[in-house]
Design a protein around this nucleic acid. Structure first.
Length: 244
DNA sequence: CGATTTTGACCGGCGC
DNA sequence: GCGCCGGTCAAAATCG
């Protein structure tokens, strides 16, 4: 297990370099013309694969989403009270390309209800700290997808007890395999309002070890495709569905 | 009884 | 260099 951890932590620079290299097939998009009937141990052996780096929405994109949202609020309906309350606190370090070490958003969410713990994605809590000069502790979560180092930090707002501050941070990476695992299981397209149940019930992914056999690993990966707790999903999702 | 959360130890960065 | 502080780790506790 230690080796696994070392592997994921120690090789970050390597990973980043790889991500920035267009030649590198480290990350994949599903290509439509690939029917994936043949099972390869590792998809990067396939020349048709597309390499891409997800680098997060640009500041402009986020801001425009938010202003769309704010425009929409008033023409929208009653339950939108929390819409108004959901605003960007701070945007830092987002690049439309490249990697500067941080992709970080803080969102203030008012009347949050359940939004904090149930944003439809799978997170693993790894810590909680009380912070100097604030009455409220912070909680720390990592994306449950072992291939993604997205993190979120959650705290109650000091000035407004109805608000939580959620900070999403990290390099957000999707891995999407261009073929299907031989399986009787149907891939069901997630219906919009079913987003919240897209997670869970999957196998424990933290047991993934370096020695696991590739097919097994891919099966697990397949499960994970439905559980993207990633910034690119979350920001538009919050913007569009502030109520949750 | 496995999965998840809690909680204090640990660690690295920073200011003095 | 030392101590504080925020972040992470991981053993223990708790949950379902």
């Amino acid at each position: 297990m230690d080796e696994v951890k070392k592997l994921t932590e120690g090789s970050e620079d390597e990973l980043v370099n790889e991500l920035l290299d267009n030649e590198s097939p480290f990350i994949f998009l599903r290509s439509n013309d690939d029917h994936g009937s043949e099972t390869k141990p590792f998809p990067w052996m396939d020349p048709h694969l597309v390499s891409t780096l997800y680098s997060g929405p640009t500041i402009e994109e986020v801001e425009s989403s938010l202003s769309d949202m704010n425009r929409g609020v008033r023409s929208f309906q009653p339950e939108d009270r929390s819409l108004e309350a959901c605003r960007i606190l701070d945007i830092g370090g987002i690049r439309s390309s490249g990697y500067n070490g941080k992709n970080k958003y803080s969102l203030i969410i008012k009347n949050h209800g359940n939004a904090l713990t149930d944003d439809g994605y799978k997170w693993r809590k790894y810590g909680q700290k009380s912070i100097k000069n604030t009455p409220n502790p912070r909680s720390y979560y990592r994306c449950a997808n072992p291939r993604c180092n997205a993190k979120k930090r959650v705290e109650l707002s000091m000035e407004d007890p109805d608000s939580i501050i959620v900070t999403y941070e990290g390099l957000h990476v999707h891995l999407d395999y261009p073929f299907s695992i031989p399986s009787t299981k149907k891939r069901k397209r997630p219906v919009p309002e079913a987003q919240n149940q897209a997670h869970d019930d999957g196998p424990k992914i933290f047991s993934l070890g370096a020695t696991i056999d590739p097919v097994k690993e891919l099966e697990v990966e397949e499960e994970l495709i439905g559980s993207r707790g990633l910034l690119e999903d979350i920001v538009p999702f919050i913007v569009r569905n502030p109520i949750f």
